[in-house]
């Protein structure tokens, strides 16, 4: 695919002091970030943190924004999406009963490039088939979109993005609502595209399955909490500020695992009580894993093990939406 017409030096995405929202509702405040060509970046945070809003701000789809957003060297303003950027929406937002076939959906990605009449030209069809074949859904072109599996559906919308020959690919929760096998396929596919030089930004709420495998993450909760390699960024402190919940980080053999601390402690507590009743010692199998988590070393009662009723009281404010 021809990339180069829009090539420019410097970062692909520059965000300087971005504050944005809908109506009177502020979703993101004072975000600074830059993403360079060929990066694969995950936006991580709880629901309502502003992950999708940040993607939409890059596309000029957030009605109110202050600060500066530049994509591929061009200033993004509300209502003016930057060229060279393709977007894959969350599958849940798609109307699956709409009468469209796979090829009809994919060709939408070329709506503004095809000739004025309704049917696609030979070149458009050739490009479409090449992309569908590459994504492994070449045989499904004439199927209705509802007849496909979750992974195939995700590929259809990825194909629609790719047929516009973008430099930057933005994906909203590409792995939510699909099974493990599909999730891995989608991630491998994105990894392949990234190796070919595509800059990719995706949102995800799956820390272990998705975010921990990405080379770079931005932790978001109403503002940018931290950014960097998940190996360095995912610390209990950052995760606490991002999610407003206690989490533990386990590092073993180069593997990174984030665990929700509360159920773990709750289970330990329950097990302890159970063992007590039976006159045994509770097993202490977790002791080695927690390195820098200070909360863990006290003995906990049940109330302490549960997350606080009002997380806002202790955690940074989780912005609406």
């Amino acid at each position: 695919m021809a990339r180069g017409a829009l090539a420019h030096d410097g970062p692909v995405i520059e965000i300087e002091g971005l504050t944005c929202g809908y109506g009177t509702e502020l979703v993101l405040q004072d975000v600074h970030a830059r993403i360079t060509a060929g990066q694969l970046v995950g936006l991580v945070g709880p629901s309502g943190a502003g992950k999708t809003t940040l993607l939409r701000a890059l596309l000029g789809q957030v009605p109110r924004m202050v600060g500066r957003v530049r994509v591929l060297g061009r200033e993004v303003r509300p209502g003016a999406p930057p060229p060279g950027v393709a977007y894959v929406p969350q599958l849940e937002t798609v109307d699956w009963n709409f009468p469209v076939t796979v090829e009809e959906v994919v060709l939408m990605g070329r709506a503004m490039r095809m000739r004025p009449w309704p049917w696609p030209g030979r070149e458009d069809r050739r490009l479409m088939h090449r992309i569908l074949d590459r994504l492994g859904i070449g045989s499904l072109a004439r199927r209705h979109i509802r007849e496909l599996s979750g992974g195939q559906q995700q590929r259809v919308f990825l194909a629609r993005a790719l047929i516009s020959e973008p430099h930057v690919l933005l994906l909203d929760e590409p792995t939510s609502g699909v099974d493990v096998k599909t999730r891995d396929e989608v991630l491998h596919l994105l990894g392949d595209l990234n190796r070919d030089g595509m800059t990719i930004v995706l949102t995800t709420h799956e820390l272990n399955a998705v975010a921990a495998h990405l080379p770079w993450v931005l932790c978001i909760n109403g503002s940018l909490i931290a950014q960097g390699d998940p190996d360095e960024v995912f610390t209990p402190e950052v995760l606490w500020r991002t999610y407003g919940a206690a989490m533990q980080v386990v590092r073993q053999d180069g593997l990174l695992l984030v665990a929700d601390a509360a159920p773990h402690r709750l289970r330990e507590q329950l097990r302890h009580r159970h063992a007590h009743r039976h006159g045994e010692e509770a097993p202490h199998e977790h002791e080695h894993a927690h390195g820098d988590d200070h909360h863990h070393h006290h003995r906990l009662d049940l109330a302490e093990a549960l997350p606080p009723l009002d997380p806002d009281a202790r955690a940074p404010r989780a912005a609406g939406r």
Binding site: P89, T93, R110
Partner: peptide, 23 residues
């Protein structure tokens, strides 16, 4: 409908995303 077929289809199917693709 003939000349706006592709744009009309995109805007009807996916009104949120169509503007991103320049529709």
């Amino acid at each position: 409908v003939f000349f706006a077929y592709k744009q009309l289809l995109f805007a009807t199917f996916d009104p949120e995303v169509a503007p991103v693709y320049g529709v």
